[in-house]
Design a protein around this nucleic acid. Structure first.
Lengths: 233, 233
DNA sequence: TAGTGGTCTAGACCACTAA
DNA sequence: TAGTGGTCTAGACCACTAA
């Protein structure tokens, strides 16, 4: 007698993934119908469906109704990137977090802000410059703009003690978030604030959030020299 | 008579998400049990489960058996990043893709390669330098190392006509992938190859892949000036 | 150890789309 | 228009873990 172990959907996923890895099914090949796989493996079709959905989400197979399931020909490197609030990030690295408000004004938005939000009209927003510190040393310089239309309450928040980052994260959940990564050379202002050599290469993370098509905030975060962004799979 | 529309799991997810957005449930608050939500909304518990799983995957709520479901106190910005093969990337931007093999040797791995794979022993791998072009102009300079242990076949591939990028993607599916993003200043060699100003800030994408703990390849891709990486949510 | 989320099943019906 | 994947349901049992 063999023991009939019940198959979990992860078992099914791993089984099929293994067949793709060992080239039983090659890129472009069509896999059997869910129902047939279920019959073969002795599990319910919904278990196969769950497994396939995961492989599909991971970019490994492509599924079409009536068309069936195919191994993807052009796999993409798909990863999940978590960007925590800066305080958490520093603390997770075992550092002591610090924060300095550098500037706070209501003014016409800069061109890059207008571009990020795809606004046709120039408008005013709350502009906040702040410095995040790790172990007393500059860590991230943030140039943030906050819509006073979506977040009027921000005007009465004491941003010298509470970072806008933190307040927004707790009080303004968003429905859409765009990210942009690129490199810049440190200009005089950035070099001073981050105590980085003039002209050094710095990673920039721009993030813009919306709630139902209404802009909430956009931030250009310039990181200190040597900063690296990692995925954690 | 009202028409009883059947609730889909996305409806349930959106309904609960809306309640989090409108602060019916605030960060830290506990949500009702799945079963109670199901009863309230008049759907099956598994439908609520599916919705909740999605919110949990998105980092919006946190679920624990017996502990129930909570709105996350420290939401993270969680996004999915797709990195296609370079040829596809160029073509998707409407450019004409080109490729040049610059160098191909079997040699002792560089320190950064050893670090990426966490190898205790120095070993040899196939080292490939190549340039990707968009519309005849340098686009990405790649410094790639390929394990001849995991991929001995690569030694007989004509890398002058087929990019290693392309061959690996089609022939070596991986089980683990690490990514690393940072900025570098263009040194003389990089500046020459990319026709970038010496010292200009460039975004670097490092990617390392494994199959079941065996290294496949690691690549340091230095992008041309002005290159930006975007998420597409 | 009791309560909550996680998963499986079998069956039904729906939604999309290749042929 | 027929065939496939997508989803829902009701019920069962399991797995984890807060209390």
């Amino acid at each position: 007698m063999t023991t009939a172990t019940r198959l979990s959907w992860t078992d099914v996923r791993d089984h099929i993934h293994a067949q793709i890895l060992d080239r039983t099914y090659r890129p472009g090949d069509k896999l059997p119908r869910d129902e047939d796989i279920a019959k073969d493996l002795g599990c319910a079709r919904s278990t196969v469906q769950r497994a396939m959905q995961d492989l599909s989400d991971a970019g490994i197979v492509e599924r079409k109704r009536k068309g069936g399931t195919q191994v993807r020909t052009d796999p993409v490197t798909r990863t999940t990137l978590d960007i925590p609030i800066t305080r958490k990030e520093v603390e997770q690295r075992g550092g002591i977090y610090g924060y300095q408000l550098l500037n706070r004004t209501v003014e016409d938005i800069a061109p890059w802000v207008r571009a990020n939000f795809a606004l046709s009209q120039p408008i005013t927003m709350l502009h906040v410059d702040a410095l995040h510190l790790a172990d007393q040393r500059p860590y991230i310089l943030e140039d943030r703009w906050i819509s006073t239309e979506t977040s009027p309450e921000i005007l009465s928040v004491d941003l010298a003690t509470n970072s806008a980052n933190e307040w927004l994260v707790r009080n303004k959940p968003y429905t859409r978030c765009d990210l942009r990564f690129y490199a810049v050379e440190a200009d005089q202002k950035v070099a001073d604030k981050l105590t980085a050599p003039l002209g050094s290469a710095l990673l920039v993370i721009e993030r813009s959030t919306w709630i139902d098509d209404h802009p909430i905030t956009t931030v250009r975060a310039v990181t200190r020299p040597g900063y690296q962004l990692l995925t954690q799979n």
